[in-house]
Write a protein that binds this DNA or RNA. Sequence first.
RNA 1: GCCUGGGUGGCGGAAUAGGUAGACGCAAGGGACUUAAAAUCCCUCGGAGCUUAGCUCUGUACGAGUUCGAUUCUCGUCCCAGGCACCA
Length: 860
Amino acid sequence: MKYEPQKLETKWQAFWQREGLFEVAEDPQREKYYLLEMFPYPSGRIHMGHVRNYTIGDVVARYKRMLGKNVLHPMGWDAFGMPAENAAIENSTHPAKWTYDNIEAMKEQLKKMGFSYDWDREIATCDPDYYKWEQLVFLKMYDKGLAYKKRAFVNWCEKCQSVLANEQVVNGCCWRHTDLEVSMKEMDSWFLKITDYADEILDYCDRLPGWPDSVLKMQKNWIGKSYGAIIRFPLVGSDKVVEVFTTRQDTLFGATFMCLAPEHPMVKEIVKGLPQEKEVHQFIENTLKMDSFMRTADFTSKEGVFTGRYCLNPVTNEKIPIYAANFVLFDYGTGAIMAVPTHDQRDFEFAKKYGLPLRVVISPPDHEIDEETMTEAYIEEGILINSHPFNGQRNLEALDSIAEYLESEGIGQKTVNYRLRDWGISRQRYWGAPIPIIYCDRCGTVPVPENDLPVELPLDLDLRPNGASPLPFEPSFFETVCPECKGKARRETDTMDTFVESSWYFDRYACPEYALGPLDKDRVNYWMPVDQYIGGIEHAILHLLYSRFYTRVMNDLGYLNIREPFLNLLTQGMVCKETQQCPTHGYLYPYQVREGRCSLCQAEVITGSTVKMSKSKRNVVDPQDLIDQYGADTVRMFCLFASPPEKSLEWSDQGVEGSFRFLNRVWRLILDCLDDLKKVSSYDGKIELADPLKSLHRKTHQTIKKVTNDIEDRFHFNTAISAVMELVNETNQFINSNGKKDDTAWSVIREAVEATVILLSPVVPHITEELWQVLGYKDSLLKVEWPHYREESLHEEERLVVIQVNGKVRSKIVVPSSLNEKEIEILALEDERIKQVIGDKAVAKVIVVQKKLANIVVKN
RNA sequence: GCCUGGGUGGCGGAAUAGGUAGACGCAAGGGACUUAAAAUCCCUCGGAGCUUAGCUCUGUACGAGUUCGAUUCUCGUCCCAGGCACCA
C-alpha cells in the first residue's frame, strides 16, 4: 500500500469532524488548558505565516489533549478593517460579502491543514452579535470616564483617510502604508484612558515569567515611565506661571531659558500685542505644517523663536527668556521645558544657535569645565556647583532633596510621567464597529441607550470611490433622535479601531453565543486566562498592550476575574525565502523560474537575500500548492522541523521534500513488516531483554523522554522530530540486520513503532491516525494517552568515557556504568594510549565527571 | 544614539546545569539495485597536514580573561536582525 496523503487526510478530517473530537465544554473536574493562536485577518487565502503559527499551536493543543487536559483551541476572524473596503471598491462587491466569502475560503483551507479547532466557537468580529457587546463596554467606559472625546493633534494617514493611534505609526509612516508619511491633523477624537493603567501594566511586566523578555522590554519602553518634577516658573509681568516637567531638577540652577512647544496654547497668549507676535505666529504655522516624521527627523535642525516674554527661574530669580521651539513635544510632560544648555545636548545646540547664556551647575569629578570653552553639554555625573544650598552634593543624590525643597517652597512637586498616551480609537472608516454616541444640539454628547444596541453598521451603502467612509454622507445612518430630548440629533460616524475587537475576542471564545452580555462569567472564568498564546512578534506592542489594558477594564467592570489575559506567550519568527530577480522582469515568483532562468525571457535569474515572504518581493509559496502536492502532514512537519519556533524559518523546497521522504519511510517501516507486527503486542517489560533488543527498547524510552521534554519545556519541535528520526533509523537498522526475529523481537519493534506513531501524532496527525488503524487499533489516536518512559528502561550498563589530557581528547573507553570516580580514574591512567601521551610527565591531578569524562592534568 | 536578541560546516540547525563541537535533515560526491530512469538502500562529507588500518594540528565573528576544561561565563571590538528614538 502506497502512502497517499491527500486521500487519507480527507478521510481523517471527516472522521474528526463527524465524531466532534475537538469540541469542548467546561468541566470543573478536569484541568483546563486554553491554547490560543492570534486570529487572522480574513484576507482570502492562508499564507505560510498562518500555517507556521497555527501548526505550532496545533501541536501543543493535541499534545495537551493527550495528556488528558480539557483543551480549548478556538479560531475566529479579525474581520473588520481597511482591506475589505479597498477590495470592495476594486471589485465592486460589498465589504461584508468580500469578508464572509474570504472567511469561508480560509476556513476551508484551515480544515485542510488538519488543525484541531472547536469550530463551534468561531467568531467573526464584524458580526453585530459580537460588536454589540463591544459597544456596550464602550458605554460603560464612557460612564466611568475611561472613554472620552477631545480635540487633539492626531496622526492622519491620507491613504487610510483616517486617524491612527500612536502605536500604529511606524517610522513616521502608517503601519499599513509604510511608503506614506503620517501627517498631523487637529480633530475631535475618542480616546480610551490606557494611561490610567500605565503603572499597573508596567508593574505586571515583572510578573509575566511566561513572556519573552524582549516583548516585556518593548512594552516597558513604550510605557516609558520616568520620575521627575513639575516646576512652576512665574511669568514676568503677569500672575501666571509656566509649568515644566523635568527629570533633572538637579540642573534647575542652570536653567537659563525656557522652551514651549509651538502648539502650547500659552504661546499665542503671551505674544499678544508684542512686536514678536507676527514672527511667532509664522513660526507656529511653519512648524505645524511639517508632519511628525519631518519634525522629529535627525536632519531637522533645532529651531525656535523668541516670544518677547520672560519668566523667573524660581530658585535663582533670574529673568530667563521664553522661546517657542520645534523640538519640544506638546503632548509629553507639560509641553514646556526648562533649558539647561550646559547639561543637555539639545539645549546646548539651541543656546549656541541663538546666543543664549550658559551656566555650569555640575562639575565633573576630575576636571573643570568652562562655559566659554565647552563644545558640548556635560551629561555625566558630578558635584553640584552654583546651586546654593545644594553645592557640593553629588547631583544624582540631590535629586530627591531638591524635589522636596521645591515642594516646601511651593514652586513644584515630584511627579511621574509616562511616554504612553491615551489610545485614540476614532477611525473615519466604514468597515468597523460604530461608536455608540449621539450628538444633540441641546443635550450635547449623549450615549446610545443600552437597549438600542447594537448600533448596526448599515450594509446597504455604496462605498465612495475616493475611499472615504460613506457613513457621514448617509442620512439614514446618521440622522436620529436624541435619546434624552427626542429632538433631531446626529450619530457619531466614526468607527472604532479594529484593535478594540482584538482586545477581548479571546474572552468571547469562552461563550461565543452568549446573549445576555459580553461574557458569561462562569464560563469565562473557567477558561481564562489563556494558558498559551502564540503569534507574531509584530504585535509585541499594539495588540498585546491593548489586550492587557482592556482585560483590566473588563475586570473593573465586573465582567471577568482576571487582570492579565495571557499567561504564556510564544512569539514565532517570520517565514522567509530567498528572492529571485530577472534583470528585465524584476522580482519573480518561484514558479516563474526554471533551472535558474526567467521563464519569460530566459535571462539568468539573480538570487537575492533571504527575507520575509511577501507578495511585493514575490518570494512566496502558496500553502495550498504544497498541500495538493505533498499533503498537510508534510507541510506541518517541515514548518516545525526547519527551525525552532521563535526563530525565523527559511523556506526550502528540498527541505519539504526531505520531510515527505521521512513520512514515507515511517509508512514503509510499518507496512513492510505489518504481518510480523500484527502477530504480537507491544513489549510489556515482562521478559528480560538482551542486546541488541535491549538497546532498541532503551532507545524507544529515551526518545519518549526527549520528545516529551522538548515539547513540554521548550516547544523545540525540531529537536523532538530529530529524536524520532533517530528512533526510526535505529528501528530500520535493527529490522534490516540479519538474524531471525522471534516474537519478543517483534514485540520490541512494535513498541518502537507505536512510540513513533504516538510521538509524531501531534505533528502529523493524519498519517499517524492511519498507521494506528493499520496496526489494528479501533479507537482514534486522539484518545490515546501520551506515553510515559520507564526510568529503568533508560539504564545503560556501559558508558563511553572520554579521556582527556590537559583538556584534549586522547582516548575513549567503554566502562560499566557502575564504576565510581576513583575506578574510572584508575582505568583512564592505565589506558595504553594515555600512557603514551603522558610519557614521563607528572600527573598533577585527574578530574572525573561521572559517566562522561576524565581529564588528566599533567605538567611538563 | 539607546535597549533587546543573535553570529557554529556548502545550507537549515544540534550541543537543555561549563564536560567528545557539528545530532537530525538538506545539498554534494561515490557505490549497490535497474536494460535505463525514478524510487530505495549503503558509504564519505568543517579546514589543513602527515610516515593515511590511523594520527597530528586547527576550528563555534574577532581579541583578551576566568577555569583542569569555554559554542556555553566575564570584559572589550566588529557585524547582522528587531524595537525605541529631540520623551526634557
